[in-house]
């Protein structure tokens, strides 16, 4: 069933369009940057962009910082929201269940397909932005310094970028689980995706709000940018660990809710 879901994902034009857009945004930013040579001041968002002008090898990290807050989670919300509700609204859900595909198995396959989508997206963003960064900006992959100013070898840089990619992918799972849960609640993929986006926006707003300080550590987006710590020396693991733990909790809670709802649901679509 997992293979079937991956096949369906791969054959859907929407998948490739969204991945294209995902890679397109950092490229667009790079072109503007290259044209104007006008970077943000060091320390300003998006992270790393200031350093890119002097070293293109850092652009993959900057690209992750660009797509992470909005583009990637929106894509995940849409894919997750579409997972079950899309099948329901197309009428194919009942035929899948009649093959029969167990309801739990279907949910797991949808989740795996979503994880693969996120990983593909992150890998493609890093790969295209690496090519773009090395070509548009003066590049010295051998002379990259970490945020803390310590020199990184190309191997160190590669390992840290891979770790950052994994962290970003894991960060998306919370939103994905929420979207998947909503997708089992509704027969409208749009409603499910919008619901997940609403949760996302709420979290993003509360994170910046001092008055919401008491709930801040538990918001799904709170530690989203903690992967930047991977480019410090020594690496402060505290936020990264917390971010992973929070994602694990969100995934566990919302997947359990999705399963409980879907397994006992009357399929009337």
């Amino acid at each position: 069933m997992i293979a079937v879901e991956l096949l369906k994902l791969a054959r859907r034009p929407r998948t490739w369009v969204s991945l294209g857009l995902l890679c397109g945004l950092p490229i667009l930013v790079a072109v503007f940057l290259w044209w104007t040579k006008l970077g943000p001041k060091p320390g300003e968002q998006p992270a790393f962009l200031a350093a890119v002008l002097s070293n293109g090898a850092l652009f993959p990290a900057a690209a992750l910082a660009i797509v992470l807050p909005l583009f990637l989670p929106v894509a995940v919300a849409v894919i997750g929201g579409d997972a079950v509700a899309g099948e329901a609204s197309a009428g194919t859900l009942r035929y899948l269940l009649l093959r029969p595909v167990g309801r739990t198995r279907l949910l797991v396959a949808k989740l795996v397909a979503m994880v693969v989508y996120v990983l593909t997206g992150v890998v493609l963003v890093v790969a295209t932005s690496l090519v773009v960064g090395l070509n548009l900006f003066p590049s010295e992959p051998t002379a990259v310094t970490s945020v803390s100013g310590v020199a990184l070898t190309p191997q160190q840089l590669a390992v840290r970028i891979v770790a950052a990619m994994l962290y970003v992918a894991v960060s998306m799972l919370g939103v994905g689980a929420i979207a998947l849960f909503l997708s089992t609640m509704s027969d409208s993929p749009l409603a499910a995706a919008l619901g997940a986006l609403a949760a996302l926006v709420t979290s993003q707003v509360l994170v910046t709000l001092d008055a919401a300080g008491s709930v801040r550590p538990y918001l799904p987006t709170r530690y989203w940018l903690a992967w930047i710590d991977l480019f410090r020396d020594p690496i402060p693991w505290r936020d990264i660990d917390r971010g992973l733990a929070i994602q694990a909790v969100y995934v566990a809670v919302f997947l359990a809710a999705a399963w409980a709802n879907f397994a006992s649901k009357d399929i009337k679509s």
């Binding site: 369906k8 009428g91 194919t92 009649l98």
Partner: peptide, 14 residues
């Protein structure tokens, strides 16, 4: 069992 329930459904782009 082979079944047809409330009309056929298929992935339109395939």
């Amino acid at each position: 069992v082979g079944a047809l329930v409330e009309g056929p459904a298929a992935y339109g782009h395939l």
